[in-house]
Design a protein around this nucleic acid. Structure first.
Lengths: 330, 330
DNA sequence: ATGATATGTGTAACCGGTTACATATGAGGT
DNA sequence: ACCTCATATGTAACCGGTTACACATATCAT
């Protein structure tokens, strides 16, 4: 590999001059610049980002810590982040934490050692380390941390859940069950609370209709199947995420019940998968791609020390009516 | 951040000694080592990987270039790769190429500039650059390149396709259609050829029953819907991948036909999604996770210059019978 | 006693960039 | 004519590690 010194020698100038033309900084005579450019081309030279990183302490690399890229919600987020990071000249390192605090911490340590410029993390149980935040730019995404200081991007979980429940009610559902995500994950609790508050306001809340399925599709199938055996009056299910909704759908069909005639199902997230299945899933869609893109832009600002207009971003989720819910009675 | 020099000063030794205890190389007196370790702990020192990279030319980072992480096949691969790379102490950079040669090349250039240690790439149209291969360790995964030298990991596409077609035949299907992937992608052609060869051997091949759906779910739905309108005799569909199979399923259900009673459907890949839907998809399952893991191990060997036993790995795909195909008549 | 070898440690060059500082020249203002 | 400032370029230190080499001492065989 050609180095800056070999270029300098070939062009008959000093390394400082080569560096100047490389970075378009300082004064360089137009003729000198041409010579340097010619030498660069001739040697097929590209500067070593590693060497450069050693003094600026900038690697143009960010870390993306997700629970599990295999969960269909996250690839969409990852894609968005990668797309915008590419525009800004950053590269993204992928880390799967499986939602474990230890793994998250381990990855953070490695990333710091590698002089990564910033981190986007979707975490449930991330212990807020204010010290850490002062060391490295971080933004939390979807699953966030209780901290005023750390920028966050998330969907409107509570509001979305209310929307879902109200919609089910409006289509005539009387007994609506809720498939809940992990108690430890804040957005799962918020979605449950939205559901509870709507039903309580209507005076038809029944705690027995909330079952835990941990954002897991198989668990959702199992748990829904049991729920249906136990209680035949259920005519609507609000799942805390689309994955669980799809799991529930399967259980319903296995039960020989029809969707949406016998039971309506509504999910949450708006993952692409919802459109792929039959019948297509009605859901509260979050702007997943936008969430990722915004998180990425915020991180870039943080890194480049551009002041943020606001630190906490909540993106509205909206109802996408498809085929697993009954039509509104007009 | 503490540096090796500050540690050396605190411990009262030279930087070389600190480096020695850090890398467990050379002779260090046990007492000296203790002093150094104490200083390291006291300063909470971790060596800068960037500085280290500058002389070893090793970054312990690899690039993973995939067409699109949003396609459900790839997250499983990515997960496997990340898992084994983590074991070996490597970090993985994610790149989405959208199957474009330009983007692939662009990423390769950036990765090389960053002194990445190696690349795993799933490419269809990758122009084999022997020169490139001599510059940086590469392994191709799933979608590979015609080259003896570049190690590859792939599934048994041709054999798997034969298996699928034979199975459909054995369950009594008479008119089997094929949803084909992109003509440019080698594995798509191989899968088609397996299908053709089996039917030709049986003397019941009909070219009209092959339709292009480009590994795209929506296109598969559209194309299957049209196919079904055109030809009502079809009683089996072999889709070139699971995504298209799922798309086909949707079209069949929209047509009011029953699966598998009226039409059997078999996919290819064995993505997790196949189990999530209802009815569960029969498929030719590739060991996706293993493919990723093996590719990762090969790359590590390449990087660490451990000789390879073999350069081309073909992993057998196997039939996973689920609910979209009729049972074997006994 | 002597040379060979194992053990233990420090100095300084090196990896490949960036940049503070020094130096030189020419143009413009007074 | 002299000072100031913009333009143009080079030298060398620095970023934070690794490592070749030098040097010193201890151990052991002959």
């Amino acid at each position: 590999m050609a180095t800056i010194r070999s270029v300098a020698k070939l062009a008959g100038v000093s390394v400082a001059t080569v560096s100047r033309v490389l970075n378009q900084r300082g004064y360089v005579h137009i003729e000198t610049e041409k010579k340097v450019l010619k030498a660069i081309k001739e040697l097929n030279y590209t500067p070593s980002i590693v060497a450069r990183s050693l003094n600026n302490k900038k690697t143009n690399t960010i870390g993306l810590i997700l629970p599990d890229i295999t969960n269909p919600f996250f690839p969409e987020l990852a894609r968005a982040i990668e797309d915008v990071m590419q525009i800004y000249g950053y590269t993204v390192v992928l880390c799967n934490s499986d939602g474990s605090v230890e793994k998250e911490q381990e990855y953070i340590d490695i990333l710091k050692q590698k002089y990564i410029d910033g981190i986007i993390i979707s975490t449930s149980n991330f212990v807020i380390d204010q010290e850490l935040f002062s060391q490295i730019p971080i933004v939390t995404l979807d699953r966030h941390v209780t901290s005023e200081k750390i920028p966050s991007v998330e969907g409107g979980n509570y509001e979305g859940a209310k929307l879902a429940t109200e919609f089910l009610l409006s289509t005539g559902c009387k007994h609506i069950a809720h498939l809940q995500g992990p108690e430890t994950i804040r957005n799962a609790r918020e979605r449950r609370d939205g559901y509870i508050d709507v039903l309580k306001a209507k005076g038809c809340f029944d705690g027995n209709l909330i079952v835990a399925a941990d954002y897991d599709i198989k668990k959702a199938t199992k748990v829904t199947f049991e729920l249906l055996e136990r209680d035949s009056s259920i005519d609507g299910i609000f799942a805390g995420n689309d994955l669980m909704a799809i799991g529930a759908l399967k259980a319903i069909q296995m039960h020989g019940l029809r969707v949406p005639d016998d039971i309506s199902v509504i999910g949450f997230d708006g993952i692409a998968l919802g459109e792929m299945i039959y019948p297509e899933l009605t859901t509260i869609a979050q702007p997943i791609y936008d969430m990722g893109a915004i998180a990425a832009r915020i991180l870039v600002k943080l890194i480049e020390e551009v002041p943020l207009e606001s630190t906490h971003h909540k993106l509205d989720a909206q109802l996408v009516e498809r085929r697993t819910t009954r039509r509104l009675s007009t």
